[in-house]
Design a binder for these strands. Structure first.
Length: 290
DNA sequence: ACCCAGGCGGGCG
DNA sequence: CGCCCGCATGGG
């Protein structure tokens, strides 16, 4: 069972809210552009710009892609994880009032599938930053060090390509102290680690491997596991998620990261990554706007 | 002006 | 271990 069907140049999808998904701060969405008045959105996939026209009718979102677009509809469905039914996920994580409300408010927000290396760069950039700035940083890296493809879009630079830059060049893009981490990650992921091979590893071992990269700690490793490797067991705990969970589940008491991980495991099991995305989005939505 | 941001590494007790 | 600090910048 899946959440989509394909007919002609259209995808008909259940439980897909494009806007909430695009605004939820994932790697795909950092490289997305939206024209809400025209009901259009586009994103860059493997160096190719994909544009969709959106229409909605009785609970189904229909995406219409221009004919001859440089990617397949199957690929688009894969990137929005439409192969799994969100209602099944909801059933498993809908354990309490707060989650129920978050699901109902942001129904159709989907996790996305992203390239592990891109995801690594994006979330190293995320530390001690904010979504608006992360987006700028990611885009300037692509603009400055990516390669232009046939359709005029920019392809995200590989670790090997980024290894050819200097910390100074990266700093000039406004990455701040994160520049040295990006440089190191490019070096390490080219010479000492094959990100494509980590996909086989069990979740905890995958995380351990990712944390070998300088600048990747517990939280960033979980983000990479979740959005780069599609591991729904990953539960990234950032300041927003921590604060919100302390308030919603621990009576306002301060908790340690490990205790929150433990709670998430007990509460939401192997799908806790999806729960995290709803906590993150809802806490940011009512907090200080970006 | 002031404070904080999808954290992390290192140093100290 | 656990705690605390600096880190570069941009935006509210």
């Amino acid at each position: 069972m899946s959440d989509f069907t394909i007919g002609g140049n259209r995808i008909m999808a259940r439980n897909f809210d494009v806007r909430h998904t695009i605004e939820s701060g994932q790697p795909l969405t950092f490289l997305a552009d939206c024209d809400w008045p025209a009901n259009k959105f586009s994103y860059v996939d493997n160096g190719k710009k994909v544009t969709f026209k959106i229409s909605r009718q009785n609970g189904t979102t229909t995406l219409m892609m221009a004919r001859g677009a440089p990617t397949s509809l199957e690929r688009a469905a894969e990137r929005f994880r439409m192969n799994e039914r969100l209602d099944d996920i909801y059933k498993k994580i809908n354990t309490d009032r707060f989650m129920k409300d978050a699901i109902s408010k942001y129904k159709g927000m989907r996790l996305t599938k992203n390239d592990p290396w891109e995801t690594t760069v994006c979330f190293i950039l995320s530390q001690y930053s904010n979504i608006k700035r992360i987006r700028q940083n990611v885009r300037s890296i692509v603009e400055n060090f990516g390669t232009r493809t046939i359709d005029g879009s920019m392809r995200f630079p590989t670790s090997e390509e980024l290894r050819g830059t200097t910390e100074r060049q990266l700093r000039a893009l406004g990455l701040g102290f994160r520049a040295k981490y990006i440089r190191h990650a490019a070096e390490y992921c080219t010479n000492n680690m094959d990100l494509a091979r980590l996909g086989r590893k069990e979740y905890n071992l995958l995380k351990d491997s990712l944390m070998e990269i300088d600048g990747v700690g517990d939280k960033v490793a979980d983000c990479i596991a979740l959005m780069g490797y599609g591991r729904l067991e990953a539960f990234p705990i950032d300041v927003w998620v921590k604060r919100t969970m302390e308030r919603q589940y621990f009576g306002g008491r301060k908790k340690k990261i490990d205790d929150i991980h433990e709670f998430a495991y007990e509460q939401w099991g192997k799908n806790r990554g999806y729960a995290q995305q709803y906590i993150f989005h809802s806490s940011r939505d009512r907090g200080s706007r970006i």
